[in-house]
Amino acid sequence: MTRPPQTLIENQEQLPQSLAAVSDRLFFNHLLHHGPDSRANIAATVGLSRPTASEAAQRLSAAGLIISAQRPAELVPVKRGRTPDFYDINSTYGHTLAIAAASGRARVRTQDLRGGVLKEFSQELPEDMTGSELEEALRLLAKQAVRATGNRCLAATALQGNPVNPVSQRAIELPNTPFPEGLGDLVSVLRTVCDGPVRLDNDVNWATLAEHQVGGASGMDDVVLFYIGPGVGAGIVMSGTVQRGQRGTAGELGYLRYSGRSLMSHLLEFGVASPGGERLDVERTKELFMASPPGDGAQRFVDALASAMGNIATFLDPRALVISGPFSRCGEFMDMLRDALNPHFLDGELEVVVSALDEDAPLLGAGLAATELAYEQIWATYRS
């Protein structure tokens, strides 16, 4: 079970609310973090009187958010006396949904309010799909997931490989994009299965959120994640918040220019382009690092990346750099990258870590965001 990050729940406590709503949320949040528990223990743990806890339990039960739960066998009293009331989150109240459409594959996942995965479906995406064909494929996949989950969708998120305008929630088609998937209207797909709040973002931003909340950068307020795969990109966390920029194009690493050319054009000049010529062929690129010792092409490839990454690190001064994507699992590449990055670090102590979340990070981050949206919606419409 994936516990909801504490910050996602604590942030909600900043909203104006009645004293009854405060009690209800303390009661509910305790169950989110700790699982089924007795009313008496919840009252003692969160600092409520027993009558106040009892009233909170009644209101939350009436709203359908919690239910009476079976007591664990080891807690059933042997002697006579009143058996304590146990409660848990109502698993049938609703779920969240996250859709991933990137790198030629679609995945749809539903989760409960604790972040536990309920259902997941996937299918391959042909490279020649039109935007409307993509939308229809994702719509059918999302409907299948919601139908299999069996209750209403409270909030939904989606991700794809292109940058997303945070205001319009539309994918931005950049010149020579290496990711043709996701240019359809994914928000409209979400709205066909979810009446609650929906949000679209690109895969690197969602991966960065996951790394910051539950991954190797957990507890770090200033972090830069670099994705190195068929395309290259960056996700930025400053003061604990993922930064997307005014138009949503912050972190588009491949478009940084030097010597009059983009970084991606420099990387592709080593004969490692995939068919079509706009993205890296991962396996062919890894072959650059398989020679012993790696040749001049490998060193120049790494130096080009390290120059761009090092300049970003110098400018932003993060606590750590997180390296993700298929190249992060190539030991020879990572050794050369660390060596090439060292001269760019002003104090020589910037931590470089490999993502522990691997390829699941973007969908995991989208799922975390959907859970947060669900909490916001629950309490925005809750009447104590």
Rank of each mutant, 00 (worst) to 15 (best):
S38V: 08
P36I: 12
T110S: 12
V78P: 00
I66A: 00
E173L: 14
Y375E: 15
E10T: 11
N342F: 09
G367A: 05
L141P: 00
V242D: 08
L125G: 04
V223P: 05
D112E: 07
Q70F: 00
L31D: 11
E211P: 04
L19Y: 11
V237W: 00
V117C: 06
E359Q: 11
M264A: 13
D185F: 05
C330T: 09
V302P: 00
V78Q: 14
N205I: 05
K286N: 12
I67P: 00
G104M: 02
M238Q: 10
T96G: 10
D195H: 08
Y227V: 04
H95K: 03
R25V: 06
Y258F: 12
R25P: 13
N205P: 04
S262V: 02
P16H: 09
E181M: 04
V108Q: 03
P343G: 15
C330Y: 00
L138Q: 05
L368R: 02
Q377F: 06
D112L: 01
D128T: 10
S132K: 10
W206Q: 15
G184W: 01
L154F: 11
L31H: 07
Y227W: 14
D195T: 10
L363W: 05
A62F: 02
R3M: 08
E55W: 03
A56L: 08
V223F: 03
I66W: 01
L141K: 00
E135F: 05
R247S: 12
F270K: 04
R105I: 07
G235K: 09
A366S: 15
F121R: 09
I312V: 13
E10G: 06
E136L: 11
L350F: 01
A369Y: 06
L138N: 05
E278T: 14
G161S: 13
G196I: 11
A20F: 01
Q160I: 00
R3A: 12
G310C: 08
A340L: 03
G116Q: 09
E135Q: 13
E173V: 13
L280G: 13
L154N: 10
G47S: 02
V223G: 06
P5V: 07
P175E: 14
T177E: 10
L15N: 09
G219P: 02
G297I: 01
M309E: 11
L305T: 09
S38F: 04
S18V: 08
I323N: 02
T83L: 11
V282T: 14
V187I: 15
L263M: 01
Y93T: 08
G216T: 08
G229F: 10
S103R: 08
V223W: 02
G325Y: 08
Y258I: 07
V272F: 06
Q17A: 13
E269C: 03
L268S: 04
V237Y: 00
F327W: 09
P51V: 14
H95R: 04
Y227F: 13
S54L: 06
V108S: 05
L363G: 06
A53L: 07
A308S: 14
E376I: 13
A73K: 03
C153H: 09
P180I: 01
L341M: 11
A356L: 04
H33L: 12
T149G: 02
L316D: 08
V204S: 07
